[in-house]
C-alpha cells in the first residue's frame, strides 16, 4: 500500500470510530446514570463511572417511582404497552395479509384505487385526524379505552402493512391459486392453506415494523389510551417531567428510559436483517 493510501485508510477508520462514539455515547450515558445512586447522578459528571453500580434505580423505576400522584412505577405501564402492541400488531397483520391477498391476486376492479385511498393515510399528518377521531370514540362510548387506542393503531398501521403484504403476494406465481381454485377451494381456504404458509418471512418484516411503531408511539397513546391503559412512552415522559419531592432523580428517570427502550432495542439486535427490511419497507414506493 502506498503511504498516501495508508494515510487514507487511517483517516477512514478515524472517521468511523469517531462517528461510532457519537452514536454510542448517549446510550452509554443513559446506562451509566441508571447504575448510579440519586446523589451521584445529580452531583457528578455524567461521564464518570458509577462508584458502586447497582440496580436500585431500575427497581424503583419499575415499582415505586411517582408519575404524577401515582407512585407505582412504570412496571404496570410496561404491561399496558405489551398488551396494546400485541393486540394492534396481530389485528393489523391479519387484516393486512387478507387485504394484500385480495388486492394482489384476484384481479378485482379498482384494486389500485383502494390501495391508493389507503396509502394516502400513510402520508397525512395524524394531527388533522385526531380530533374527529376523539369525537367519534366519545360518541361510541369508547374514548380513552384499550379498544380506542388499538383501533387507531390498526387504522394508522394498515396502509404500509397492507402494501408490504400486497407487494409480496403480487410476486407469487398465479398458478398457485389457479390450481387451488380448480380444485374448488374458496378465498379463505386458499388463504389459509396456500398463502399463509408462504407468508412467514413477510410477516416477520411487517411484524417488526408494526411492533416498533406501536411500542415507540407517543402521540396516539397520549390522546387515546386514557389513564388505565397509558403506554410506557407516555409515562416515562411524564415521569421525567415530575420532580418527586422537588428533587429530580435522574438515575430513576434514566433507568425508566432504558426500560422503555429495551424491547425494540433487543428486537433490533436479535432480528438483524429483518429489522432493516422492516424499517425501510415503509420506503417502497406505492
Amino acid at each position: 500500500m502506498t503511504p498516501a493510501g495508508r494515510a487514507g485508510r487511517i483517516g477512514l477508520y478515524l472517521f468511523l470510530v469517531t462517528t461510532a462514539l457519537f452514536f454510542a455515547i448517549p446510550l452509554v450515558i443513559v446506562v451509566l446514570t441508571a447504575l448510579k445512586d440519586a446523589d451521584e447522578a445529580r452531583g457528578a459528571s455524567i461521564f464518570l463511572l458509577p462508584r458502586s453500580p447497582d440496580l436500585e434505580a431500575f427497581s424503583k423505576a419499575w415499582s415505586s417511582a411517582c408519575i404524577g400522584r401515582d407512585c407505582n412505577g412504570i412496571g404496570g405501564r410496561f404491561w399496558n404497552s405489551v398488551v396494546i402492541t400485541a393486540l394492534a400488531t396481530s389485528i393489523s397483520l391479519l387484516l393486512a395479509s387478507l387485504n394484500g391477498f385480495a388486492l394482489a391476486l384476484w384481479n378485482l376492479r379498482r384494486a389500485g384505487l383502494v390501495l391508493g385511498l389507503l396509502l394516502v393515510g400513510a402520508f397525512v399528518p395524524y394531527q388533522i385526524m385526531i380530533y374527529p377521531l376523539v369525537r367519534m370514540f366519545a360518541v361510541g362510548g369508547i374514548h380513552q379505552t384499550l379498544a380506542a387506542v388499538v383501533i387507531v393503531h390498526v387504522l394508522f398501521g394498515l396502509p404500509i402493512l397492507t402494501l408490504i403484504f400486497r407487494n409480496y403476494y403480487v410476486g407469487l406465481p398465479p398458478e398457485l391459486i389457479k390450481a387451488a381454485r380448480v380444485d374448488g377451494a374458496g378465498f379463505f381456504q386458499i388463504w389459509r392453506l396456500v398463502i399463509l404458509p408462504l407468508s412467514l418471512n413477510v410477516a416477520i418484516v411487517a411484524g417488526i415494523l408494526s411492533v416498533t411503531g406501536v411500542w415507540n408511539d407517543y402521540l396516539l397513546g397520549l390522546i387515546f389510551s386514557g389513564q388505565n391503559w397509558q403506554p410506557m412512552t407516555v409515562s416515562v415522559a411524564s415521569l421525567s417531567a415530575t420532580a418527586s419531592s422537588g428533587v429530580p432523580e435522574q438515575n430513576v428517570n434514566m433507568a425508566a428510559t432504558l426500560l422503555t427502550a429495551l424491547p425494540p432495542l433487543l428486537l433490533y439486535l436479535l432480528s438483524g436483517k429483518y429489522f432493516v427490511r422492516g424499517v425501510t419497507a415503509g420506503a417502497v414506493k406505492g
Binding site: A24, I25, D217, T257, F275
Partner: peptide, 23 residues
Amino acid sequence: YQTIFLYPIALSFIVTGLAWRWL
C-alpha cells in the same frame, strides 16, 4: 459499525429526547 450507526432508529423519539436532554 453498521449496528452502532443504526441502533438509534429502533428507539422512540421520546427516548431519544430524554437521553439527549440529559446529555
